[in-house]
Design a protein around this nucleic acid. Structure first.
Lengths: 144, 144
DNA sequence: TTTATTTAAGATAAAATTGTCTTAAATAAA
DNA sequence: TTTATTTAAGACAATTTTATCTTAAATAAA
């Protein structure tokens, strides 16, 4: 469904957010230990999310990554997905046609419309805050 | 959403089916001209679908690919997708956890459940016949 | 100011996916 | 039987994605 890069990105953000709720900045090494992902690759992905403003970072000793607490409920999953994978999962044709619309649809066009709309709605309405709270309360996990 | 291999496979099957409705066997060269895909790669994919019984083939002059007319409504899109991409799109964890279930869910587990169920239902209930009829009647297209 | 720590950035490498090419096998027609 | 045509199968190559490695920049503490 998503690329590995997006999977790592989502998990990293959820972990960072869960720690930011405790006023803790986290280093990339701590992040990957908690989400079971390759460190350098994850660092690059989180770095891209810093550039886009989803995460904040401080370099040097006592540095690390964190997320502004009051922004956690404004940042939605769709922001992370589109920042890494782009929007082709929502807008591209399910059968790979360069163009595909209601006028000249691919054979599966109308079959996909609802499912994609539902996926988009879900990602649009799911905040980092919500997922980080689920993790912190033990309702969900990031590795096993 | 799907791999290129699955995209090509679905389009090839729809085209072959649309021609089988006219009692026409089609060669791989004709298929790729109508779905705009690389010929050797497509041949390999369609070959895999032959092995699995979704398509029939005859080698040699006057040979080609065809689909049993009375099976077209029994073959569903899910059969093509799982034959090529496997079932990870339905069963795997959305965030890539090796295991993820109601007992120990990833943070997005319940968010994904409905969307994946809908996707599966759609692929389960969509037959080759239905899509090939849409193509033949001009309601849908396979390239542009 | 020096050193240690950490993120930033970009080059390089490995793996997976996508795509091509060659040869073999089947089969129909001449 | 020979030839031409077509699918079958597998080796090979290119591209994309995933992952690693190296160096630079920032910054805090000693």
């Amino acid at each position: 469904m998503f690329s590995k890069a997006t999977e790592y990105g989502i998990k990293a953000i959820i972990y960072i957010a869960s720690q930011s709720m405790l006023e803790r900045r986290v280093k990339i090494g701590e992040v990957v230990e908690h989400i079971d992902s390759p460190v350098a690759f994850t660092a690059k992905i989180v770095g891209a999310l810093v550039k886009v403003g989803i995460v904040q970072s401080i370099t040097g000793p006592y540095g690390g990554f964190y997320i502004d607490r009051h922004r956690m409920d404004q940042i939605k999953m769709i922001d992370i997905v589109t920042a890494i994978d782009g929007d082709s999962i929502f807008n591209g044709c399910g059968l790979g046609l360069k163009e595909c619309d209601d006028e000249q649809p691919c054979p599966m066009h109308y079959k996909f419309v609802q499912i994609r709309a539902d996926l988009k709605d879900m990602l649009n309405s799911t905040s980092i805050l919500e997922l980080a709270e689920g993790l912190k309360s033990g309702k969900s996990i990031l590795m096993r």
